[in-house]
Amino acid sequence: MSAVVDMPGAAHLVLADGVVHLDPEPAVLEAMLEGWALQQRTRFLNWESTIRPRIALVRRLTRFTNEYPWQWDPAEVEAFFDHLRTRRPGRPLAVSTARNYQNDLRLFFDYITDTRYGWPSMCNERFGRAPVQLLHEWNTITHTSEYEGAAERRPLAYDEVQTLFDAADGRVGEIRARRRKGSLAALRDAIVLKTVYAFGLRRQEACGLDLCDLRRNPRVADYGRFGAIFVRYGKASKGGPPKRRSVLTVPEMDWIVGVLDQYVSEVRPAFMPGKHPAFWITERRDRMSLRRLNEAFETARQAADLPPELDLHSLRHSYVTHLIEFGYPEKFVQDQVGHAYASTTAIYSHVSDEYRNRLLRRSLQARHGDLWGQET
Rank of each mutant, 00 (worst) to 15 (best):
R356I: 11
A221V: 15
T62Y: 00
F271D: 13
N103F: 01
Q204S: 14
A206I: 02
I141H: 03
A16E: 10
R301H: 06
H276P: 00
G200Y: 04
A3Y: 06
V132I: 07
R358H: 12
N66M: 06
V5N: 09
R362W: 07
A150H: 12
A98Y: 00
A366W: 04
A304P: 09
T345C: 13
T344M: 07
D104L: 00
A296H: 09
L33G: 06
W119H: 05
K243S: 12
L364C: 06
A340R: 01
H313G: 15
T140W: 01
W119G: 02
R126I: 00
D370C: 05
Y348V: 12
W280A: 12
M288A: 09
D222H: 09
R284C: 02
R116E: 04
A94V: 05
R176M: 09
A11K: 00
M32W: 00
Y223P: 02
R216D: 15
R99M: 01
Q334S: 11
T299R: 13
I256N: 14
W255I: 10
R232C: 13
S183L: 01
M253D: 15
N139H: 04
W255C: 08
E205Q: 12
A342S: 13
F226E: 11
R171Q: 14
R244L: 06
H313V: 06
W36I: 00
L315A: 11
V161N: 08
A151H: 08
T62I: 00
A270D: 11
R154S: 13
R367V: 05
G118I: 00
L107G: 04
F165Y: 12
L134V: 07
V14M: 03
Y101H: 12
T249F: 05
S363I: 12
M288E: 09
H339R: 01
R60Q: 09
D23Q: 10
P74V: 05
V196P: 01
R180M: 14
F332S: 11
L33Y: 03
T65I: 02
V172T: 11
Q374R: 15
R219Q: 12
S145K: 08
V28T: 05
E174A: 11
V267M: 06
R59M: 08
A304F: 03
S183N: 11
S265C: 10
R178G: 14
L45W: 03
S343T: 12
R285G: 02
V14L: 01
R129F: 02
